[in-house]
């Protein structure tokens, strides 16, 4: 058996496929309309950024900082987290007072929330715990560091490594990743995207085609992730200490 036959064999038990060209076309039309809206939105963000400052760290220098100036807009959503949730408490502790954390959701060992600084539109904060499955050297993973300006690994102690991967520009969605991993693969992962995703209904196992399409669509808010690497590192350290 050669590779070609082996791969053919792997799809031999293919389930039935219901062709849905009309749905693909409808999604394509929405995508076209969305792109037109996005172009307008991006121009507005660019104008705002033009009067601000953007300083990205080179490898081995101080962490990235992003500063903006502009006319603040009212945050769209009220802060909806719960203080007795350890993930939310960590997020709130390292988020500026004027920022809104909304749609906080704990899912298994992870936490997602939309965060809005009231100026640039919402982004998405994620925090996860892993029980022994984190990579010890993610900076060596080409997929992890793709399109990022830098990825640094720092030993916090003999057993604990801090990984900071600065913004990965997989435009239009850009993200920062901070990981604390122990020698046994346990640890935490904190990430910040510049986009938000639609809600996933509780208990959703089988999604309708419309739900599937909606769940896959992200809406870009700010041009860059809102949090600095310093803020995300502080969250990761507290999360690791609190929930470890």
């Amino acid at each position: 058996m050669n590779v070609h036959d082996t791969l053919r064999d792997l799809v031999a038990d293919e389930p039935p496929f219901v062709l849905r060209p009309d749905e693909a076309m409808a999604a394509g039309r929405r995508r076209r309309r969305g792109r037109a809206v996005t172009v307008v939105g991006t121009a507005a963000v660019a104008a705002s950024v033009a009067v601000g400052t953007l300083v990205l760290a080179a490898p081995g220098t101080a962490p990235a900082t992003v500063g903006f100036a502009g006319t603040p807009t009212a945050a769209a959503n009220a802060d909806s987290g719960e203080l007795d949730n350890p993930y939310y408490a960590v997020a709130r502790a390292h988020t500026p007072d004027g920022w809104t954390i909304s749609k906080a959701k704990v899912d298994g060992d992870g936490f997602w929330a939309d965060v809005d600084d009231g100026v640039h539109g919402p982004g998405r904060l994620g925090m996860f715990r892993s029980n022994g499955q984190l990579q010890l050297h993610p900076c060596s993973d080409a997929e992890f560091v793709a399109r990022a300006t830098s990825c640094t690994e720092t030993m916090l102690d003999a057993d604990t490594r801090l990984i900071v991967r600065t913004v990965s520009h997989t435009d239009p969605i850009n993200d920062i990743q901070v990981v604390i991993v122990h020698a046994n693969g346990y640890g935490v992962n904190v990430s910040d995207d510049n986009a938000v995703l639609p809600d996933v209904p509780d208990g959703l196992i089988v999604a309708t085609p419309e739900q599937k399409r909606a769940l896959g669509r992200g809406t870009v808010g700010s041009a860059e992730p809102l949090y600095s690497t310093d803020q995300l590192v502080a969250m990761a350290e507290q999360l690791d200490a609190t929930t470890g």
Binding site: E14, P15, F17, R20, P21, E23, A24, M25, A27, G28, R29, R30, R31, R32, R35, P209, K212, R213, G216
Partner: peptide, 19 residues
């Protein structure tokens, strides 16, 4: 297979948008 189907739909939607 489910994720594969989603990827196909997304790919065709992107194609339609860029046709």
């Amino acid at each position: 297979w489910h994720q594969a189907e989603d990827l196909v739909q997304v790919s065709f939607a992107k194609l339609y948008a860029a046709w």
